[in-house]
């Protein structure tokens, strides 16, 4: 990079801050709507079941047939195992509102992130505030894009809840006015290494939610099979444990390749910056631990006795390591990666 740095646009930076706040408020409303969707799900389920029963009775009378078809035909499922939208999807008004609000939040935050980048004349991921604000934007964007194809609204409470927490954490915990990058970060590897790391992390966030729901659904199914009452009827909005596991695996495979690339790009950058490609700096240690845990997860899926709940736990542990690497290591550990701007 050249010595003649671009001028910081302070006013645009302040607009960016304002839009971050607006996005946080919109996300918080979306979170409430998603939670509302889950809360009133049991009523909706009852209505749908009653309607199904009634229509089936009518059909039975009309055909004069004997025998009982299973209640809740395929067209009346709230979710299906391929997580595509079904005939009843549109009946979830609260969820529709929540998705619209999420898109509004994504647009507002998208403007804020881009404005921040333009104001600083560089990529907007150079300190903890920017890691969090840009990271949460990517999580929300990836989630919204997946929503176009797949009905993952059951994860909305978790994902948008997390996005809200991240964005509030950025604006309240680490408010940082727009500034130039410190020399250590002035490298095009910042663009490559950090963006892929954040993208991989946002994919891991989504799989984390799926694997947690997989475990909950698994426990619920076991309880139902044992003849116990359904304590979590809202989990009817969530697909079965097996499809959750399979979908999480597909995303984890993509995210793992990205993480591998992140570590490699980081090594190349480290070589240019510090003269060694690997030196067991705390950040490097934790990136390695994360890589190994997810490698273990991929292998577990191909090992007898390790599929299902066990591999889900590995994915969850891997994500907890990511969270640890991003929060505790960034803030409390002293290392070469201390760019949190604290």
């Amino acid at each position: 990079m050249e010595n003649n740095m671009p001028t910081i646009n302070v006013a645009l930076g302040q607009y960016s801050d304002l839009f971050m706040l607006l996005a946080a408020i919109v996300y918080a409303s979306a979170f409430v709507a998603f939670a509302w969707d889950l809360a009133k799900s049991s009523k909706l389920i009852q209505e749908i079941d009653a309607a199904t029963l009634a229509s089936e009775k009518k059909a039975l009378v009309a055909a004069g047939a004997v025998g009982t078809p299973p209640p809740g035909g395929a067209e009346n499922e709230l979710v299906n195992d391929s997580m595509t939208y079904t005939a009843t999807s549109a009946k979830r008004m609260a969820a529709k509102v929540a998705v619209s609000l999420t898109w509004l939040g994504v647009l507002l935050q998208g403007f804020a992130v881009v404005a921040r980048g333009i104001a600083a004349g560089r990529v907007p991921w150079g300190n903890m505030y920017e890691f969090l604000s840009t990271g949460s934007f990517l999580v929300a964007l990836v989630f919204s894009l997946v929503l176009l194809k797949k009905d993952l609204r059951f994860m909305g409470t978790f994902v948008i809840g997390l996005v809200t927490v991240m964005l509030c954490g950025a604006t309240m915990g680490f408010p940082t006015p727009v500034a130039h990058l410190v020399p250590a970060l002035q490298s095009y590897w910042l663009i490559i290494h950090v963006s892929i790391a954040v993208l991989a992390s946002s994919l891991f966030t989504i799989t984390f939610a799926m694997n947690v729901l997989q475990l909950v659904q698994h426990a619920r199914m076991d309880a139902l099979a044992a003849g116990k009452p359904d304590k979590m009827p809202f989990m009817r909005l969530v697909p079965g444990a097996a499809p959750l596991e399979n979908f999480a695996y597909r995303i984890n495979a993509v995210a793992f390749v990205m993480w591998t690339f992140t570590v490699m790009a980081g090594a190349i950058w480290a070589e240019a910056a510090w003269g060694r490609y690997w030196g067991w700096d705390t950040k490097e240690v934790w990136s390695f631990v994360i890589w190994v845990v997810y490698a273990g997860y991929l292998h577990a899926r191909a090992t007898g006795g390790w599929t299902g709940a066990r591999s889900a736990w590995l994915s969850i542990i891997g994500y907890l390591c990511i969270v640890f690497n991003f929060t505790v290591v960034n803030i409390y550990f002293n290392g070469l990666h201390s760019y949190a701007g604290l």
Binding site: M1, N3, M5, P177, A179, H180, L181, P183, Q186
Partner: peptide
């Protein structure tokens, strides 16, 4: 910058 005055940039 008023907020980052004196921070090294190169």
């Amino acid at each position: 910058s008023t907020t980052h005055f004196g921070q090294p940039i190169d």
